[in-house]
Design a protein around this nucleic acid. Sequence first.
DNA 1: CAGTGGTCTAGACCACGCC
DNA 2: GCGTGGTCTAGACCACTGC
Lengths: 233, 233
Amino acid sequence: MSAPRLNNWQAVQDEVLRRIHAREWPPGALIPNEADLAVEFGCSRATVNRALRALADSGLLDRRRKAGTRVAAQPVAKATLDIAVIRHEVEGRGQAYGYQRLSRAEAVPPAAVSGAMGTASDRPLLHIRALHLADGRPYAVEDRWINTGVVPLARAEGFETVSANEWLLEHAPYTHGDIAFSAVMLGAEDAGTLDVAPAEAAFAIDRLTRDGPAAVTKVRLLFPPGYQLRTTL
Amino acid sequence: MSAPRLNNWQAVQDEVLRRIHAREWPPGALIPNEADLAVEFGCSRATVNRALRALADSGLLDRRRKAGTRVAAQPVAKATLDIAVIRHEVEGRGQAYGYQRLSRAEAVPPAAVSGAMGTASDRPLLHIRALHLADGRPYAVEDRWINTGVVPLARAEGFETVSANEWLLEHAPYTHGDIAFSAVMLGAEDAGTLDVAPAEAAFAIDRLTRDGPAAVTKVRLLFPPGYQLRTTL
DNA sequence: CAGTGGTCTAGACCACGCC
DNA sequence: GCGTGGTCTAGACCACTGC
């Protein structure tokens, strides 16, 4: 039997994965170059390139010009998290989404916030606190600062029925963002809002969104105990 | 002035990003098809395709055959987390990595573990507990169950100096994995191991690794308060 | 220097899915 | 049906980098 022609990049990728998995190409090994594989698989080099590039993107291969392509010795797993609008996250679970604004004020933020956002320490920002609900139960508390210098339109919005989460996506373009996940102990106020005992462990997502050099908004989302952020490898 | 020729896919991507950001192509808008853009940009359709496909992968565009390409109304941010070997994570911070095995035993796991791994409820698995250190201080506690039915070689390994984390990458192939992130309150034992007060909030990473249908290993990593998992958008 | 991956081109065929 | 994106091909040039 001769090898079947692999004439699409997914078939090539599958075959490469099979060889890695079967240890025909063990971790750290140098694999044939694109041109040779193209001949072996009976396809064009571009097709091989597409397949290998996808595997390199996912961390399974290390590719370097001249040095060639190696099976990653210790693959860095790339877990992709889909950070969706909270309403979609809740509705995606088949639950009814609810939203409740807790407070809205223009105020000078704590130094930690103005520092992270790069705004003057005495500059007032728009401060929104809100509760997201799933099937009527608290799902997450949102504590957000909005840079009104970058998004002046926000001063005219009450955020009583539209969450800042969604409003900003529609009205404020951004170019970059930082996200950090951590575990924190709930303070009395947040615990009360989430309707759980104080000093419980909460899952926190901190996001800072930028438009070029300027910070657009900084938000902390706190999820009650039991919340899990899931993904696959 | 006429538009400069965009003869590489990154330049095309940048121009498309610029138009989205400048609201020339607002959220939800249908953008020209690949062939038209190729003419406008003075490059081949394949180059346009590469640029648009990359943007679609990152969630900024929605592409459907016949329906065309639209700017995503509410971009689902794809945050990519690099889940590296813990030693690399520590060394990447410029700290000295240390490893300490706490215990090793073959034992019948709790029902929750055998259930998640799909092993018989009375089947003994290899149970490893270990501590990862950064600059001599506790960095994370690892609590792992290994399916010796799938990785029999593990029974011959003491894991006294090599962490299961790294040993398994070298010796046990896998095809899929699930990861969950959550916040938990530390029990007395784990708190003691991490040298923090009990009932503190810890960041937990639970990972289940499979090779086809069979579970290879299930691990929980607990990080002391202050730990943050970071990424960018 | 020379081998490798990175990319572009021009053209082609195809699969999907609105209409 | 037919317009759209998805993909393949054969060939080419180039950038990087190990030797």
